[in-house]
Design a protein around this nucleic acid. Structure first.
Length: 253
DNA sequence: GGCCAGGCCCCAG
DNA sequence: CTGGGGCATGGC
């Protein structure tokens, strides 16, 4: 039978900028391969490519987490009802680091286009219009002015520092959440929010709780005086639900 | 055509 | 350590 993942809310809730959907077909480059599927072919895709089960996080306790969060309060109940099946992907840490360096003082539309631009201009061709996001090794020769020419603006030095210090990522998996966050923040342009995005979306840290402008509004409105611990042990999933719900429903009520 | 955006840096107090 | 200005660029 079909899996319980909700593809639209999973792929278009701002945790990844790699996917497009056209005529019911989802497409992106994942790990140097073009992945292309429809909701009908999703199950067979997973059977064929075992690694994608992990990418889509198919084997985590979503049923349990959804029930828990839906019972926590009315607002979460609505968000979970609206987007039940929202998964948190297991993305490549390097790509998440770069994507969320792009995200600061920016909007999702433009983050997507900047991410796509880096892929097309600096990444390896896969097929058709598709390019893989460039690996750090492919970017070693690049300069700040190169990045500015590509429209990266004031984020160019941040991207450059990430390129030069990408080895920080190799140690993150072994660290606890707080230590990992601190280590990530040694990269220029990575603060608490970007670090928590990397931990949530690339390292499966379920207590990470990215607080951006949208989430600050949500917390003020619906959870005054509370913090991530209120949503434990499912803070990251709660955050993703609340963020997406706020952005799409305009935070009604 | 201004306004503003999944923050962070930097510099005052 | 807290607060506030500045930041490149383009979508709206």
């Amino acid at each position: 039978m079909n899996t319980s993942i909700d593809l639209d809310s999973t792929l278009f809730s701002g945790q990844t900028f790699a996917w497009v959907k056209q005529n019911g077909v989802y497409e992106a480059v994942v790990d140097k391969n073009l992945v292309s599927f429809t909701p009908e072919s999703f199950d067979s895709l997973l059977q064929k490519h075992e690694a994608l089960r992990h990418y889509f996080d198919m084997d985590w306790e979503y049923g349990k987490a959804e029930s828990y969060l839906a019972c926590l309060d009315d607002h979460l109940a609505r968000a979970v009802k609206a987007f039940k099946g929202l998964h948190i992907l297991n993305q490549d840490p390097w790509e998440v680091l770069m994507a969320f360096l792009l995200s600061q003082n920016n909007n999702i539309k433009r983050i997507r286009s900047m991410y796509e631009r880096l892929s097309q201009e600096l990444g390896t061709h896969v097929e058709g219009v598709w390019y893989a996001f460039p690996r750090p090794q492919e970017l070693l020769g690049i300069s700040e002015s190169d990045l500015r020419r590509l429209g990266m603006g004031f984020r160019a030095p941040y991207l450059l520092d990430a390129i030069q210090n990408h080895e920080v990522l190799s140690g993150i998996a072994d660290l606890g959440d707080d230590e990992a966050s601190r280590a990530l923040q040694t990269i220029r342009g990575v603060g608490p929010k970007v670090a928590s995005c990397i931990l949530a979306f690339a390292y499966h840290r379920r207590q990470a709780f990215p607080l951006d402008t949208w989430m600050l509004k949500v917390m003020q409105k619906h959870y005054p005086g509370r913090d991530a611990s209120y949503f434990a042990p499912y803070a990251a999933l709660a955050q993703q639900y609340l963020f997406h719900y706020e952005r799409t429903q305009g935070g009604l009520l």
